[in-house]
Design a binder for these strands. Structure first.
Lengths: 123, 123, 123, 123
DNA sequence: GTGGTCTAGACCACG
DNA sequence: GTGGTCTAGACCACT
């Protein structure tokens, strides 16, 4: 379910965050679904529980998951879609940075839109 | 010409790389144009020369600039547009990650395309 | 009568304590009133009896409720209003901490008083 | 400058967060001021650097401080005062909980206002 | 069992 | 020097 690339420059906890987010977007994880406990996930992906805990805390901060005391961790009932202005702005800046790469690679607007649309629909 | 955000969590050398890339894309820097020496640039943007050196090294690796011994550093004559398969793939992965943010924020496909197009044309 | 927010980071037993206190303040529970046995309460709010027991124990310590052997548990005849210096001091420290949040959020004194008064009267 | 109560039920990192916040409110720490590096602070208050790091990260998330790569950590130029609706609501709930204590202790509205005002002005 | 916190020590990238 | 991340192991409160 979660694949960690230990060679990646992206930190492990960030990979966990991204992949759980991805799984919620794709619908593989639905609101209310339980996700593995910190210790189980740590065993599954062969990292220390602290690292998983950090990822889960970040996900809870972003309201992707909810933790219930002594019970475990679950996908949030209300999956964001809160027009958080700061978050949109941050995403926009990130997008600009990535699109710069495409521009430099000589991709024209039409091609870029096709690529972006294809990816977006696959999410 | 180059603006560094010292509070940003993006590393300074990466900011330099991105902004020089941006300037070449926008046409503010054309092939053959000289760019400031490491020391001058370091003075201009108030960072240590080693940081600038690292940025220039990265730009050279990406074939955005060329260093001519004894002459200085210049924007490359052949600005990419080389179908570097690995580079495209990397950019695509980055794009997917960023678009995931938009999806989670509840942006629909149409809105996303509008935002991306607007940014792309401004580049 | 008692609503538990399982997602809250406040512990369940603390929520029980607070809500029973709240009900006594509002007069919904009067001195001498019986409150459900540990087991009934546990069934009602879907938690384990040990959690309820812990809450009742804390309430007894604070002299909000009294347990009469073989009879059950009741709201205390003498509802506090005892000038417990330590308790007042503790409440004061808690208040300072909470008011700090308001200050940081830019709430001015007048607004704070309005909010506090409104809440206090609703209790 | 920072006093940790190791016996407190409040976690160490939270005490650090609260006290730095308090110092900014009181004006002892002004925008732009440097705060001790993670390692120095760790030595000062005799805790492990990880714990201080956690506190600093939380403070940065709350935009109380800003970290500058390789330079250190500083009080933010823009001390919040952003009417974050969620934050205000959370503070309000906390206030209600604290005020309940006063009510139970038999403090009347007028007295409560006096106490709250006094504390608020001292902040 | 669960998550939350802390320690002690390590390695890394950055400036 | 700085902050960021990770490990390995521990203790705690809560359910």
């Amino acid at each position: 379910m979660i694949q960690i690339d230990y060679k990646s420059h992206k930190s492990i906890y960030e990979q966990i965050v991204d992949q759980i987010k991805y799984n919620t977007i794709k619908g593989y994880l639905k609101p209310g679904d339980a996700i593995p406990s910190i210790r189980k996930m740590a065993l599954m992906i062969q990292v220390t529980p602290t690292t998983v805990a950090k990822a889960y805390q970040e996900l809870e901060r972003q309201q992707i998951i909810e933790t219930i005391r002594g019970k475990g961790t679950f996908i949030a009932q209300q999956l964001t879609i809160q027009p958080d202005k700061a978050a949109v702005e941050k995403a926009r800046v990130n997008l600009e940075s990535v699109l710069m790469e495409f521009k430099l690679l000589g991709v024209d607007t039409q091609q870029m839109i096709e690529i972006a649309t294809e990816i977006y629909k696959s999410l």
